[in-house]
Nucleic acid binder design. Structure first.
Length: 277
DNA sequence: CACCAGGTAGGAT
DNA sequence: ATCCTACATGGT
């Protein structure tokens, strides 16, 4: 682990970050829709069939799980083996980005489950974040496997394709996106292995074959579900910011190797602060 | 009432 | 190839 240290404690694992780890920022950064702060400084994170309670403790976080699970599941999920300090040190000569970094210095790019990411970002199109979260929560509650209970809250896994394919998913009120999800679940040609080639353009081409996936959603899936760090999704906020701050052109090639991280910093700062005035 | 939300498909030019 | 518009739903 590069940006912090961890050690066993009686509740599980105490993780003390040295760089770029703030759960509140991460859950409000728009890359994931299911990390929840259910009480002040008490969080639940879910990936695949794994659930963990995390609570803030001193200048770190306690993960309520065995050390082995922390190492095998949560270190990769929170991308703790990537050094964000190196990325951050390359931000200079750009006062907007410097302010964005100051505001969102706890953001990391998660390594989320691919299937969940595909479905979630199809739902995200022309939608707003609270409603996306609600729809996804309804899908999980109605069709996902029950995992466990944390402080009285029942936790469900994200539904598999098999769990969705013959279900009436209208309870999630996805609007016109419901058809996209149905198509995805029932398309016999769809196979998650198609996105594991390791080639940026081939992978994007394959993603664009999915009905409901265009340029922007494909880039989100590439960044958040496949960890292509050079993917730079342009949504309404990023387009607005490029116009307002950079007079219409932002040279992303300056940040090769971590363009997606730069995008997250810009998105999080602009959406939460600058545009609120 | 109009307008917006982490856009895209399908059709017209 | 590039431009245009309809699109479900719920919130302000």
């Amino acid at each position: 682990m590069i940006n912090g240290i961890f050690k066993e404690c009686k509740e599980g694992v105490l993780f003390t970050p040295s760089c770029a780890f703030d759960l509140k920022q991460i859950l409000k950064s728009g890359q994931c829709f299911r990390i929840k702060e259910y009480n002040t400084d008490e969080f639940i994170a879910i990936t695949g069939l794994h659930v963990v309670k995390i609570h803030k403790y001193l200048n770190g976080y306690i993960f309520h799980c065995p050390t082995e699970i922390f190492i095998n599941i949560w270190i990769p999920y929170f991308d703790l083996n990537t050094d964000y300090a190196t990325f951050q040190s390359q931000i200079k000569d750009d006062s907007f980005l410097e302010r964005a970094l100051k505001f969102g210095d706890g953001i990391r790019i998660l390594r989320q489950d691919l299937w969940e990411t595909i479905v979630s970002f199809i739902i995200s199109q022309r939608n707003n974040i609270p409603r996306i979260q609600k729809s996804i929560e309804l899908l999980c509650q109605h069709f996902g496997s029950y995992l466990t209970s944390i402080d009285g809250r029942k936790i469900y896994a994200f539904p598999t394709r098999e769990q969705l394919v013959n279900s009436d998913i209208s309870v999630a009120s996805l609007g016109y996106r419901e058809d996209y999800i149905k198509d995805l679940c029932s398309n016999p040609n769809f196979n998650l292995d198609a996105f594991q080639s390791g080639d940026f353009y081939k992978t994007k081409e394959n993603l664009l074959q999915i009905r409901g996936v265009g340029e922007k959603v494909a880039n989100c899936i590439m960044l958040f579900g496949l960890h292509y760090m050079d993917s730079y999704p342009k949504d309404v906020w990023v387009n607005k910011l490029i116009n307002d701050v950079y007079n219409g052109n932002f040279d992303v090639t300056k940040y090769t190797g971590f363009a997606g991280y730069i995008q997250q910093l810009q998105f999080y700062y602009y959406r939460n602060i600058v545009s609120q005035r």
